[in-house]
Write a protein that binds this DNA or RNA. Structure first.
Lengths: 185, 185
DNA sequence: ATATCTCAACCAAACGTTTGTTTGGTTGAG
DNA sequence: CTCAACCAAACAAACGTTTGGTTGAGATAT
């Protein structure tokens, strides 16, 4: 009988990596938070890098299934879809004022730990694609939707940074409002 | 006769911290890049944290004197001021595709290394204030200028993140174009 | 002008601690 | 009996920092 499931380990790791960053979070930190010895961690993942890969992949899948998918719900209006998107996203990004794991890890590691680049790129590509689909549903041209989607993702990531700098979740909310103003209908 | 000046040490440190982040950059890395033994570094700064503080303060001052100041040149139009701002800023942010040191360090450290928070906050406050002054010169209300300024800084920081993710400096340029579209005159 | 002193600027080596990882052994459910 | 699930301990390497000593240019004294 195991003390903890892999899913729980990943969930705890997400939290820690998001708050403390990749390099600042030690295997000991992670193990302790999971109630394990750090050596026991290697029963589940055979390196810190492998753990991070698992964490990023799991989180990417979660976003695809639970959040990005909201963009493709053609039953409701484009704007309503974006609102549901934000509603789902907000509590995740605001908890502990730690923002977006992918964004944080990007600025910390992407020039040095190149092994995370492809997952990071895939995550943001999917995010942008989801937003683009919403903007097309709003009546935008392909070109225009593409531009607005990128712009919206950047605004949110920038807002998450400012949210953490000034410790004010309202900054994120205003960014979401700003994105919603881009809609025609 | 010294091998290297403090100014050069700080400049080299800025480059390394910007590329590799705070925790991933060791005192050995920094010393080697400066042609010194890592122990010799403590003749100039008595801790890694003190070095980073020096780096952040120096960079903050540089921005205030050389970049943010462009916003207050009331001889030229608001839009022209923003353009000169971007022109000065771009080569700094795009070199080595490493983005903005303050932005990078924010997402890596702000939840853990709280000692950098006040410098980071001061930097972004001054940046936003500079942009706000430009938007007021463009004829915006105080409220409107404040909002546009924050929005613009967020867009640029978000764009810097995407620039690094997709290794495409064009993303930053487009963000600047997008900001320039906010001007009435 | 030469000898002496001084002190900033450095080096080489070691410090204790923490890092990620490995090893060998124990436990207990099936 | 077996094997996944763990622990306790050790591992080498890297970390930030300290130590003690060397160097040499410039000030001071003779």
């Amino acid at each position: 009988m195991q003390k903890i499931t892999i899913q729980e380990i990943v969930r705890i790791s997400i939290d820690l990596f998001r708050k403390q960053g990749y390099n600042r979070t030690s295997m000991n930190d992670l193990a302790l938070a999971c109630g394990l010895q750090k050596g026991s961690f290697y029963h589940y993942f055979n390196s810190k890098e492998a753990l991070m890969q698992g964490v990023l992949n799991t989180l990417h899948q979660y976003y695809k299934n639970k959040i990005f998918s909201l963009a493709y719900n053609d039953d409701i209006s484009a704007k309503a879809r974006m609102e549901s998107f934000f509603l789902k996203q907000e509590p995740i990004f605001t908890q502990d004022l730690a923002g977006c794991l992918f964004g944080n890890i990007t600025l910390e590691t992407i020039s040095v730990e190149v092994e995370f680049r492809s997952v990071i790129q895939a995550f943001f590509s999917d995010w942008i694609a989801a937003f683009k689909h919403i903007f097309i549903a709003d009546g935008c041209t392909d070109e225009m939707a593409s531009q607005l989607a990128k712009q919206s993702v950047m605004e949110i990531e920038g807002a998450l940074m400012m949210m953490r700098v000034f410790e004010d979740v309202e900054i994120l909310r205003q960014a979401c409002v700003s994105v919603l103003k881009k809609f025609k209908n």
